[in-house]
Design a protein around this nucleic acid. Structure first.
Lengths: 113, 113
DNA sequence: TTGACGCATGCCGATATGGGAATATGATTG
DNA sequence: CAATCATATTCCCATATCGGCATGCGTCAA
């Protein structure tokens, strides 16, 4: 078996930096494919391909507007990723706690001197 | 160019479901490679390879313990992912707002009847 | 030193990728 | 209908994957 398809998962879809850029840009509003391509410095086919992946995992929606096709954000699909990583939140806070405890210790030691 | 290396990014590293399982399991404590492989139903080389990827992006740490090698979580690297997705939080809340508004409308309409 | 154990690495095959270029498809206008 | 503009798709290449299997390497015990 090879690597899973980029469309198999939101996790896979957002593994591509350019796709993350697309999503970030779409936060400010809908764009046509050409606009997107220009603003992000990619070719039209390139943008189109990335948008297709994002569409297939449900992170963007498209609607026709004349001969253009406007893409907009549908970020609900990012929620599972946010929640999954959130399940580890206490682990990176833990590091701070430890550091904090260390600093407290240091303080006390110095004050005692 | 092909797809980016799985080790190029935390985003790429966690695109693999089995690697996410490994991380989830490690929340409950350190494991040896063989333990991990058994608990997750993968082969030893399989586990070893995934662990290597996770190590290279800094999501796990290893320490020697006799002839075993214990792997533990270092989940700080997940924080950027959590924060990045968090940047879209208002968009999925927005959906709820819309739905909420719709339900409110419906209520009012019915009450007016 | 020789085994035995735990883990890492190497090689293979099948597969999917992202980029570039060309082209097909679709919609609008004259 | 023909011409034009906006997107989508296709073909090709180089690359990296994941899985299975065999094997190498490091550590410990006798």
């Amino acid at each position: 078996m090879a690597r899973a398809a980029t469309t198999s998962d939101v996790f896979n879809a957002i593994a591509e930096p350019q796709r993350r850029e697309i999503l970030a840009l779409l936060r400010t509003g809908e764009r046509s494919v050409t606009e997107l391509a220009q603003e992000l410095g990619m070719t039209q086919p390139g943008a189109s391909k990335h948008l297709r992946v994002l569409r297939e995992v449900g992170l963007v929606r498209d609607r026709r507007a004349g001969k253009q096709r406007l893409y907009g954000l549908d970020a609900g699909g990012l929620r599972p990723v946010h929640e999954w990583t959130g399940g580890f939140e206490r682990f990176w806070n833990e590091s701070f706690d430890r550091l904090d405890a260390y600093v407290q210790d240091l303080k006390q030691t110095r004050e005692a001197e």
